[in-house]
């Protein structure tokens, strides 16, 4: 909506950590001194049901309190939502779409009906399985988003994971940070 607020809409399915991703990305931006909002749309809480999360980031206080309907960025944690849920609806002209997918950006762009230059892909499922031992795509998607946007920096993300999970389990922090870094390195668009 406003030009000085970065608006991110997250799509996934119940159980994939969509809400957590929206909140964690906001918290990482907070670590970097930004003003933030992290929230989600609460429907009937069912595993597998389509879920939306939202993150706003700005250098100024944010007083908007509605859903994000014209996102700058859409992040899709579950590729089976493509063609099922209108994930790219309202995407701003020139906006970016980041998808958890092993396909090429151009193929995904064709399904979404957006220009290939707007699309970025990362195989968060494989990264998550290999690094964390389970299919939990939200952390790698955060790493990929950091690369695609450039607004939030990796050390802020790492610090957030350390603060939130450090007291509970070092392993949780380490595997998440590793998955985030790998997705950061592996995310690809048409130009890179």
């Amino acid at each position: 909506m406003p030009d000085d607020v970065l608006e991110i809409r997250w799509h996934g399915r119940g159980g994939q950590g969509v809400k957590t991703a929206a909140m964690l990305f906001a918290e990482a931006a907070f670590e970097g001194g930004k003003f933030i909002q992290g929230f989600s749309d609460y429907g009937p809480e069912r595993s597998g049901a389509p879920i939306q999360g939202f993150t706003r980031v700005s250098d100024k206080p944010i007083t908007l309190h509605n859903f994000i309907t014209e996102p700058d960025v859409v992040v899709i944690l579950d590729p089976t939502l493509l063609g099922t849920v209108p994930v790219a609806e309202g995407l701003r002209p020139g906006g970016k779409v980041l998808v958890n997918s092993s396909r090429d950006p151009a193929e995904v762009a064709a399904v979404l009906g957006v220009d290939a230059s707007q699309v970025y892909v990362v195989d968060a499922k494989t990264i998550s399985l290999e690094v964390m031992g389970r299919d939990m795509p939200n952390s790698p998607m955060i790493g990929a988003l950091v690369k695609v946007l450039g607004t939030v920096e990796l050390p802020w993300v790492n610090e957030t994971f350390e603060k939130k999970f450090g007291a509970k389990s070092k392993t949780v922090v380490e595997t998440n940070v590793a998955a985030i870094k790998r997705a950061y390195d592996e995310v690809r668009g048409t130009s890179k």
Binding site: M23, A26, I36, Q37, G38, F39, I62
Partner: peptide, 10 residues
């Protein structure tokens, strides 16, 4: 409810 109760801000 939710709009504020479940929204993280600074």
């Amino acid at each position: 409810g939710f709009i504020i109760s479940h929204t993280m801000e600074v």
